[in-house]
Design a protein around this nucleic acid. Sequence first.
DNA 1: TGAAACTTGGACCGATCAGTCCTATATTGG
DNA 2: CCAATATAGGACTGATCGGTCCAAGTTTCA
Lengths: 201, 201
Amino acid sequence: MRDRKAEILDAAARLIARQGYKQTSIDDVIEASGLCGKSHFYHHFKSKEQLGHEVLNRSFERFGERGLAILREPLIDPIERLNLFIDSIVVAQAERGCLGSSPFCGVAAEMADAGEGFRTRIDAVFDRWCDQIRSLLEQSDGRLREGVDAARVARFIIATLEGAVLMTRVSREIKVMQGIADDLKRFIAMHLQEQEAEANA
Amino acid sequence: MRDRKAEILDAAARLIARQGYKQTSIDDVIEASGLCGKSHFYHHFKSKEQLGHEVLNRSFERFGERGLAILREPLIDPIERLNLFIDSIVVAQAERGCLGSSPFCGVAAEMADAGEGFRTRIDAVFDRWCDQIRSLLEQSDGRLREGVDAARVARFIIATLEGAVLMTRVSREIKVMQGIADDLKRFIAMHLQEQEAEANA
DNA sequence: TGAAACTTGGACCGATCAGTCCTATATTGG
DNA sequence: CCAATATAGGACTGATCGGTCCAAGTTTCA
């Protein structure tokens, strides 16, 4: 049997990622998911805000499982994992015709403004992701230069990726993002031991 | 005599920077600028879209004059100018309680989505700013390492600053942005000749 | 002084929004 | 078989939106 609620969530997630939370109306969601009327929608969700939270949870969960999966590959070198992760964000944005946003997104900021509940949730998830990247940096046993604050580097990586996604939304050119991603990898290499930094320079 | 149109533009710019273009209603603008009714507003602007364009032009112009003024200071070392510029963005965001956006902003992305006219305009202005930063990098005669693509570094700088502004909008902590800004300066230093890179490491 | 530009105040329109309510008909699992 | 659940279809409300229209008073400057 079809899971209509999941279909609604999928449609809503797609719409919200493209046009934002506030700009996505319940009617839009209903039409996109092929429902007959509002009553059906409100049978599954008690409000638009609940829909928003479930969409957030769903995409965070999925991104945590799939998007961040590469970060957990035990057979690949930690720093190489990080580089692959950065590439995957570029690819995802390219696949979306530069219109992607979630979960590295301007939508995060928009939803953060749309409600304090959204904001704290997003903030917490960002923190968790930063933590994962930080631990990855620390796993690269000894290659991280002394005195480097891994948590700070992690936040820098996430901020730059978000900014890059935003830039492509304006310029609609994925090439820009590729350049930024490559430079970001160099930035990371800069925090590793000499021989490696030289090799990537 | 009071320049009511300028007052309207100021109020609108403030509102749009905080809550976005689409989320800012004409009624909001009228109330914030102390007008009596819509007729007065529509005496000065033929539509909301025109208001949007004039707000964009105005803030771009101002940011070009004031925000980027530091980039043109002839007495200061070019790279030092760039660092001061980065600091000024952090200070501006701190002053706005982490709610700032324009012109380094998520609002740019939102408005880019709100209309193709907005998008091309914003894209063009971003290009000009990138160019200014690029020329600054190139002015630092000889200190830029060979093979470094100044235009790419410039885009990286702008993307990272934008991402940092977005992050503070979610976390509401300026400290995060300060860390990112400092790391960004280090990233720039990385592209300079050895002695300098070592000095800033 | 007189016309053009600016300001006030408000009624109004059609569209869209989130959300409610009501009536039916399927579908499903205990 | 029956009751809970899911689906369908639509009317409706109260609020907000961008935008129009009108009628009247004020300021400015040529």
